[in-house]
């Protein structure tokens, strides 16, 4: 019988092979967070000087924030892309019938597979910026990254639910691409990684409270401001992320159960 651990092992293994056998892609993925830093700096200059940027964003260490924020942004995009695209990816390859033949419910496979892929992406993104942060800001800043990594992992969970819904929509619509790609720019805007959320129009400010990445960005700001972030704020972020994770994953799994039934009615291709 296939255990959850079997599925996790298989997905970890395929991620490893994928990176090992696609070295140029791996190199580009390592560079991606640095490209995002440039984008963020470009947006930052819209505020004027670096001091003004620090003040408006409410952070003490702009370097740490820029790199951590970049990792958060790229990881969030990766999670959405990978988890939402996992079904269409298998469809392209022709592997969808074979992963559906795993003797578990398809939603279980989808969730575990998406989770592993996403966590690998998160760790990968953070690992890519760690050397730059340590060189520019010192070893202590490197330790601060661990706190950010923790929040990024937690922040991945509610994103998974959103991505699952997107992945299911793509599969059921028989589309050849991830149909929620258009959400990515909105996700970045509402996360507050470029502009502080408080500067957004009211309707976007309200929407931002339902975006998990906003809370991970908040955590990155905390790490870039305090040596020891206030416990109550950390707990508040954890609490919100947990609630969102429960909400979005309940929706995502309900959708996946429906998707499995619908796919089997139509016939898996």
């Amino acid at each position: 019988m296939t255990s959850l651990w079997n599925i996790m092992q298989a997905e970890l293994r395929v991620q490893y092979y994928w990176l090992k056998n696609n070295k140029v892609m791996m190199a580009m993925s390592l560079l991606w967070p640095y490209l995002m830093v440039f984008i963020m700096v470009s947006f930052g200059t819209a505020f004027g000087s670096l001091e003004e940027f620090k003040e408006k964003m409410g952070i003490a260490s702009p370097i740490l924030y820029l790199f951590a924020g970049s990792a958060v942004a790229t990881a969030s995009l990766s999670v959405i892309d990978n988890a939402a695209g996992i079904g269409t990816w298998h469809k392209w390859l022709g592997t969808l019938p074979y992963v559906m033949l795993v003797p578990r419910r398809f939603p279980v496979y989808l969730l575990i597979s998406s989770l592993v892929t996403s966590l690998v992406q998160v760790a990968f993104n953070l690992a890519s910026i760690a050397p730059a942060v340590i060189v520019l800001e010192g070893f202590h800043a490197g330790l601060q990254l661990l706190l950010i990594l923790f929040f990024m992992f937690i922040g991945t969970l509610p994103l998974l639910g959103i991505a699952l819904l997107g992945g299911i929509a793509s599969l059921l619509a028989s589309e050849e691409s991830d149909v929620i790609n258009f959400l990515n720019p909105l996700l970045l805007l509402l996360s507050g990684v470029f502009y502080p959320v408080k500067m957004l129009p009211y309707i976007l400010r309200v929407a931002a409270y339902y975006i998990p990445t906003k809370y991970v960005v908040d955590a990155a700001k905390l790490a870039a401001t305090y040596t020891t972030p206030p416990g109550s704020t950390v707990m508040y972020i954890l609490y919100i992320l947990t609630l969102l994770a429960l909400l979005y994953n309940a929706l995502g799994l309900t959708g996946a159960v429906y998707a499995e039934k619908e796919l089997r009615r139509r016939g898996v291709r």
């Binding site: 079997n6 298989a10 293994r13 994928w18 056998n21 390859l93 022709g94 074979y98 033949l101």
Partner: peptide, 19 residues
Amino acid sequence: GFFWKLTGRENLKYFGMLY
């Protein structure tokens, strides 16, 4: 039905674990 950029053995490892 297989990953294009994985070897025969790597592909079988993946599916073997899944099964």
